[in-house]
């Protein structure tokens, strides 16, 4: 049994008196697709920031692929692909140069053209990204995350700016990567997609995990009803709010 892709215990991040992430205990197995959901400002990107060592936890422990993402950053990041949220590409570089930068730093031999093809950007190879639409930027950033066949893909709001074709591409890539053996951890508030993609979901609200499980188990645990959509579960959980919802979900696991 391999190490969990992500393991956090009591993970907390405070900014002054504001608690962005509160006592988060989470396990993402090495073979699953985990949807990390929550309203804007719930703490999803802060959590991902700590997983990627952009941010340092105030308290709590954290393992990524069995290693410490801070101390073992080089090892961990050799095996992780990240599509960040609120990023900006390098305007002066072409799509190919972006990919070459990642390929060279990860010391893998991959073809930029092949990666661009996988994300549906095959005709923009030498084009400066300054001319890219938001959807094209998002596809390129996804291609950068795919470099080196990572064991863990971390996708922060991967559907941002994508048209329906792009959304489908992301979904297909997530499934293919998971079939290849990668764990996928993605945050989203595009709830309609979540059910189509995820093995399990966790719902973060005001910094705390308020529900976690398969979509079916959450239907059973919440008041949303047996044929509820993820959106209805989400609303039920984040409206009633509070850690009590989490407690109920945990007792039934």
């Amino acid at each position: 049994m391999s190490d969990p892709a992500i393991l956090t215990e009591g993970l907390t991040k405070q900014y002054g008196s504001t608690t962005a992430v509160n006592d988060l205990t989470l396990t993402v197995e090495s073979d699953e697709i985990y949807g990390f959901l929550g309203p804007n400002g719930a703490g999803k990107s802060t959590t991902i920031g700590m997983l990627m060592d952009y941010l340092r936890p105030t308290t709590g422990s954290l393992r990524v692929l069995g290693q410490d993402p801070q101390r073992d950053v080089v090892d961990v990041h050799s095996r992780v692909g990240i599509l960040p949220d609120r990023y900006r590409l390098y305007d002066g570089l072409t799509a190919r140069q972006h990919l070459e930068f990642v390929i060279d730093t990860k010391r893998v031999s991959e073809s930029p053209a092949g990666l661009l093809d996988r994300v549906g950007l095959d005709d923009v190879d030498g084009q400066s990204v300054g001319t890219f639409s938001q959807g094209m930027e998002q596809r390129l950033a996804l291609a950068m995350a795919l470099v080196g066949d990572p064991d863990l893909l971390v996708l922060d709001e991967p559907f941002t700016g994508l048209d329906p074709h792009g959304v489908r591409t992301v979904r297909e890539i997530v499934h293919k990567e998971n079939d290849r053996g990668a764990a996928v951890f993605f945050s989203s508030h595009v709830l309609g997609q979540v059910e189509l993609v995820c093995d399990r979901i966790g719902i973060l609200h005001e910094g705390s995990l308020v529900a976690e499980g398969t979509v079916d188990s959450l239907r059973a645990e919440t008041t949303a009803g047996s044929d509820a959509t993820v959106e209805e579960i989400f609303v039920a959980v984040t409206d009633s709010t509070g850690p009590s919802a989490k407690a109920s979900s945990e007792t039934t696991q």
């Binding site: 990627m52 950053v73 080089v74 990041h77 990240i82 990023y87 730093t105 950033a141």
Partner: peptide, 14 residues
Amino acid sequence: TSGSVKFILGLPVT
């Protein structure tokens, strides 16, 4: 401030 540092810091570098 632009957020592009997230790409660099997401790579295998200290």
